[in-house]
């Protein structure tokens, strides 16, 4: 059984087609990254897979369950979502923020248990936030804040996690640290990850597979090293992209023509 099965998924809002006929089958314990130009439908896809956006057509099955037919609580036990711009409540400390991830494991009016507390402590240690556990979450740096959001997703204890641009606003070092944390959970715990990323080099280096979206449709899927070399990539982005080998690592770079040269080229 696949971790995630997407069948003929379509999302149309006010006549605008955001996704059309998307069909995917994602295996357990692998990291899939959705890439594509702005407006390709990446966020719409991951939000629909996470169940927080309703599809117009088609369906999403996670571990065999139709996520849009489930109650919120049951769905949140199957899939965790890390949104692109998480709401960070002012004044809440990191520990209180992270334990929000245990919500689907409580009754509506029932509190948590000692095992919930122990899990939060364990996850905070795994993401390196133990010493900041009682800091106001709004006072954290961008990288620390994103790790707190990631910790909240981990204590949700799902086998599938969906992340929308988990490295937004981070510098290169923090981006790498964040993605290494993710990679470790995939490798060590068998997590299935569906993420979106803008940075094609990081997408190619950290993910097992890439899904290239363009205009709401899947243009290419496959192993990361194959998709970054595909001609479809340059076509989707509307600019020439090349893959450079740097000590065995694929680096995706755009072929930039200087403005003055472009002007000459276009005038001739």
């Amino acid at each position: 059984m696949s971790a995630i099965d997407v069948h003929s998924l379509g999302v149309t809002i006010d006549g605008a087609v955001l996704l059309s006929e998307v069909t995917l089958s994602l295996e357990v314990g692998r990291w899939y990254t959705v890439i594509g130009p702005n407006g390709a439908g990446k966020t719409t896809l991951v939000e629909t897979v996470a169940g927080v956006r309703a599809p117009s057509t088609g369906s999403v099955l996670i571990e065999g369950h139709d996520v849009h037919a489930l109650k919120e609580r049951d769905r949140a036990r199957l899939v965790a979502l890390v949104p692109q711009h998480p709401v960070i409540p002012a004044g809440m400390d990191v520990w209180d923020y992270v334990i929000l991830g245990r919500t689907p494991h409580h009754g509506l009016l029932r509190g948590g248990s000692a095992s919930d507390d122990a899990l939060v402590d364990d996850v905070l240690a795994r993401v390196g936030l133990t010493r900041l556990a009682h800091r106001d979450v709004t006072t954290l740096s961008g990288g620390e804040r994103q790790r707190a959001v990631w910790a909240r997703a981990l204590v949700q204890s799902t086998r599938v996690v969906v992340l929308d641009e988990p490295t937004t606003g981070m510098d290169v070092r923090h981006q790498t640290e964040m993605l290494e944390l993710l990679r470790r959970e995939v490798d060590d715990c068998g997590l299935t990850v569906l993420a979106t990323l803008h940075d094609l080099t990081l997408a190619g280096q950290f993910a097992d597979d890439l899904i290239l979206l363009e205009g709401g449709r899947v243009r290419e899927t496959g192993l990361a090293r194959d998709v970054v070399r595909s001609p479809a990539l340059s076509a989707a982005y509307g600019t020439e992209l090349r893959v450079v080998d740097v000590d065995g690592a694929d680096v995706v770079v755009p072929v930039v023509t200087r403005v003055s040269e472009r002007a000459v080229t276009s005038s001739t």
């Binding site: 927080v52 919120e72 709401v87 409540p89 929000l100 509506l108």
Partner: peptide
């Protein structure tokens, strides 16, 4: 008794739903 649910709501409707909170019911 709804205090914990109100804490969850502080992250907004969409994230609350993703965390399993039946927002409208709460």
């Amino acid at each position: 008794a709804s205090g914990r649910a109100l804490d969850v709501l502080s992250v907004g409707d969409m994230e609350s739903r993703a965390l399993g909170l039946p927002v409208s019911r709460v």
